[in-house]
Amino acid sequence: MQISTEAKPYDTINVTPMLDLAYVLLVVFILMTTASVQGLSITMPKPSNKPSTEKHDLKIVQITPEGSLLINGVGVSMAELEQQLLRAKAADAQMSVAIKGDGRSQYAHVVAVVDLCNKLQVNMGLVTAKIGT
């Protein structure tokens, strides 16, 4: 029995690493093109160093983890909230709404209040807390 010692040349190219790279690039491309976030268009206010002397009404709307609404600490339904905001806007056209959404509540409840404020064309702001507090 004879063992051949002469090396045979490779007649094919191993394309597996090249295909792996192509698939990784394809996945990255798909993820980057579909990662565009659809959301609300909000124009952020510019800060001012001069204190405001005007005093306008401020309504605080809280969303509990269960999804119920409170306006200035009093429980209301969405229809009652709309009526109270309409009355407040009629009394003071520059009134503002501060929206405090609980971190455990469903985001849809917060968006519903934001949509209501947009519909009524009321000034609004989202109340946030520092991370770790």
Rank of each mutant, 00 (worst) to 15 (best):
F29P: 02
N72M: 09
G73D: 09
L86C: 02
L26C: 13
G132V: 02
N72G: 11
K130F: 05
V28W: 06
Q2H: 14
C117W: 04
T128F: 05
V37F: 11
D92C: 02
Y23Q: 15
K119D: 12
T34G: 08
D115Y: 02
Y107K: 07
P45N: 08
K89V: 01
L69H: 01
I99S: 03
L85W: 00
A79K: 05
I71S: 05
V15Y: 10
K119Q: 11
D11W: 15
N118M: 11
M18A: 15
V97H: 00
V74I: 09
Q2R: 13
V110K: 04
D115I: 02
R104Q: 12
P65C: 08
L21E: 15
A35D: 11
I3F: 12
T5Q: 10
A93D: 05
T16S: 07
A108Q: 11
I42V: 15
L19G: 04
K100V: 06
M1I: 06
L70T: 04
Q94F: 01
A79T: 10
S36A: 10
D20V: 13
K8V: 15
V110I: 09
G132E: 01
V61A: 01
V114F: 10
S52T: 00
Q83H: 10
T133E: 12
P9Y: 14
V122F: 02
V113A: 04
M44I: 09
K55Q: 00
K46A: 14
L31S: 09
L70N: 09
E80G: 09
E82D: 10
K89P: 01
M44C: 05
L19H: 06
D92L: 05
N49Q: 08
L120Q: 06
K50H: 00
S77P: 06
Y10V: 10
A98V: 08
D57V: 08
I71L: 13
K46P: 03
P45E: 08
E82Q: 11
C117S: 08
I13L: 12
S4C: 10
H56S: 03
A35F: 10
S52G: 00
N123H: 13
V28T: 12
H56D: 01
Q83A: 12
M32T: 07
V24T: 13
A35G: 11
L40I: 08
L58E: 05
K55Y: 00
A98W: 04
L31P: 01
A88F: 03
S105I: 01
M95R: 00
Y10W: 09
T16Q: 11
T16R: 10
V24I: 13
V76M: 07
L26I: 12
Q84H: 09
S52N: 01
A22F: 15
K130W: 04
V97F: 00
L86D: 04
P17A: 05
M44Y: 11
Q2V: 14
M124Y: 15
I71Y: 02
V114D: 08
K130G: 04
T133C: 02
I131H: 07
D20S: 13
Q2K: 14
G101T: 06
E66F: 14
L40M: 10
E66S: 13
I131V: 12
L25E: 15
K130Q: 07
N123D: 15
